[in-house]
Simulated assay, not measured.
Amino acid sequence: MQLAVQFEAEPGKITIGITSLMGQLKPHVKDVADLGTIELVIAEVLNNITEHAYSDQGFGVIEGQFEVQEGKLSVHLHDHGKPMPGLELPKGKLADLNVDLQDLPEGGFGWYMIRQLTQGLTYRRLDDQNHLSFEIELAS
C-alpha cells in the first residue's frame, strides 16, 4: 500500500493532515501500538519542519510518501524550507534530567524520540529541498 500526502506547514493544519493520514493508514496497520508510534513520530517530524524549516516563511508545504509493506512503514518527506543546521540531523541525545525543574532544557527530546522509534533515518539537502527518510517497524 502506497500513499502520497501533502501537509500544509501551519500548526492547526498539520493536525488535520496527520488525522487524515492516520485514517488512511488504519486499514493497513492493524496494531494499535504501531498506530500510536506512527502518529507520534510523524507529528514530531512535521511539527519540527513547520517550526524550524518554515519559521521565517510563514507557510509551506511538506510532501510525503508512505508505504506499508513487509512489516514496516517506509516514510519519505520533503519540503522547500530552510536546511538543517550544518546540513545534518540533530544528534538527538537525551539531556541530563537530574537537574532542577527550572534548569531543564527546552527542546531536544523530539529528535531523541524520533531516533529511538525509527530505523534508517537519513537527511539530505537536494535541489533546495530537504529530504527526510525513515522506517518504522510494525508488529502486524
Rank of each mutant, 00 (worst) to 15 (best):
V29G: 03
Y54W: 12
N48A: 07
D79R: 03
Q57C: 08
E63Q: 08
Q57W: 09
G36Y: 09
V29E: 02
V61S: 12
G71D: 10
H78M: 11
N48S: 09
Y54H: 15
G71V: 09
A33K: 13
Q57R: 15
E63N: 12
S55G: 06
H78F: 09
A43N: 14
P27Y: 10
S55H: 15
I42M: 04
S55R: 15
G60W: 06
F66I: 00
E44N: 06
E67Q: 11
V68N: 00
D34W: 01
L73Y: 03
P27H: 07
G60P: 12
G71S: 08
I62N: 01
E51Q: 15
P27C: 10
E51S: 13
E63F: 06
P27L: 06
F66D: 02
K72C: 11
E39H: 10
S74R: 00
I62Y: 03
A43G: 11
D34Y: 00
H80I: 01
P27N: 10
I49W: 03
S74P: 02
F66P: 02
V75E: 04
N48Q: 10
D56K: 06
S74C: 01
A43P: 04
L46E: 02
N48L: 06
E51W: 05
Q65A: 00
E70G: 08
H52V: 14
L40Q: 10
T50E: 14
V45Y: 08
T50F: 04
H28K: 07
E63I: 05
H28T: 06
H76E: 14
L40N: 11
N48W: 05
H78C: 13
A33S: 14
V75F: 08
G71N: 11
Y54N: 06
Q69G: 10
G36C: 10
K30P: 09
V75M: 10
T50L: 05
